[in-house]
């Protein structure tokens, strides 16, 4: 199973700052291993973020995103205590969902 994400969410004024760290190999499919064989593509394809029960991001990602990527964004209208739920699905069908509450 995929390793957990690290989610940090904090109110800054009336805006919530959210940072998500995802553990993923993000293989492009173009890299060769030491033996010279192509490493098959393996990357996160879909990311969704819900804040306080509402979908705020539905995004598609590709092979240009690095290994163990960081996503940072700001959400207006959220409040301390709201739940941030992040979900990703990769091209092999692996998925992971983690959540955190927005800190004051």
């Amino acid at each position: 199973m995929a390793d957990p994400m690290k989610i940090r969410a904090q109110m800054k004024g009336d805006v919530a700052e959210v940072r998500v760290l995802m553990a993923h190999a993000m293989e492009t499919g173009q890299r060769k291993d030491n033996a010279g064989n192509l490493v098959p593509a393996h990357f996160i394809q879909q990311v969704t973020v819900e804040v306080g029960g509402k979908l705020v991001i539905q995004g598609q990602t590709g092979t240009s995103v690095s290994r163990n990527p960081v996503f940072a964004f700001k959400v207006k209208g959220a409040k301390a205590g709201d739940k941030v739920v992040v979900n990703w699905v990769d091209n092999k069908g692996d998925k992971r969902t983690d959540e955190a509450a927005i800190a004051a």
Binding site: K54, V56, G59, V65, S66, R67, P69, F71, K74, K76
Partner: peptide, 17 residues
């Protein structure tokens, strides 16, 4: 409650920045 996404930045640890 109206939630507006005002900024979404994908920071690629090795590539983008």
């Amino acid at each position: 409650m109206r939630i507006a996404l005002i900024l979404a930045v994908a920071t690629a640890t090795a590539a983008a920045l």
